[in-house]
Amino acid sequence: MSREQMNPQIESILNNIEKVMIGKRNVVELSLVALLAEGHVLLEDVPGVGKTMMVRALARSVNAQFKRIQFTPDLLPSDVTGVSIYNPKEMEFQFRPGPLMGNIILADEINRTSPKTQSALLEGMEESSVTVDGVTHQLAKPFFVMATQNPIEYEGTYPLPEAQLDRFLLKMKMGYPDIAEEMEVLNGAQRIPPIETLTPVIDLQGLRMLQEEMKDVFVDETIKRYIVDLANGTRNHDSVYLGASPRGSIALMKASRAYAYMYGRDYVIPDDVQYLAPFVFAHRILLKSEARFEGISAEDVIKRVQARTPVPVRRLVK
């Protein structure tokens, strides 16, 4: 894709994060897309590739409250949402907010905890509120969860059910840095962790504004049709047991909007959709077991669907 002029504010955030995050610009970009689209991100990767670093840098750059929840098998829902404690002095229960009450939350190794705790988190993500002891507590705004999932361990894990995976706007992999990048990481590691040196480039108010502005990005009928065609393609594909849901289509449109906005465009083009489709759809597709045995991944299926879905290059005939 040709380099376009990015939205200057977003570019400054990106640049700020890049001061501490070496490489992985695309992951940072996608995280920002999710943040702008008020969605959440599921990062599937091994430990130690810089997930925490990135989220912290992001939080610092937008001057957001950063919370981290390390999911363990014994973690209880109230450890996430917060708990009401009886205050003998005032003779009433007082709500003590849990880590979910931040702006940017890193939910580390989400598949290690019990489904009950997982659903507490996911409910919060979906409804941007939590209910503790019958009292509904609104979550902070903006609210952005970056959950991580370790793909190599199976024992003692509770894989997320499909319905809950759907709550994440994007799923992506961080991947290892390349050699040059890793060398640079080593050079950087000799000094004090530079994350402390980051200064915010935008405040939460500014971020909210960006989120609002993003909603004005125009999505033409042709693009909507293209998104629907892609979603439909996943539903009809031979290797797919369950295709992308309409929520998936909405997610793709939202993400595309945010992506277009990030690149300073007030309209979505097919390139945006094409680029984002694997990140939006991959975790929403359930492959048939034959396909899995054949080693076909959800990303492969999406690529094939894209390859046979024509890009709209002229007006729809009504």
């Binding site: 894709m1 894209q306 024509p310």
Partner: peptide
Amino acid sequence: KRKNDQTLRNYAN
């Protein structure tokens, strides 16, 4: 020729 799944921008490049 532009491939069917090729976006205009990609093709233009």
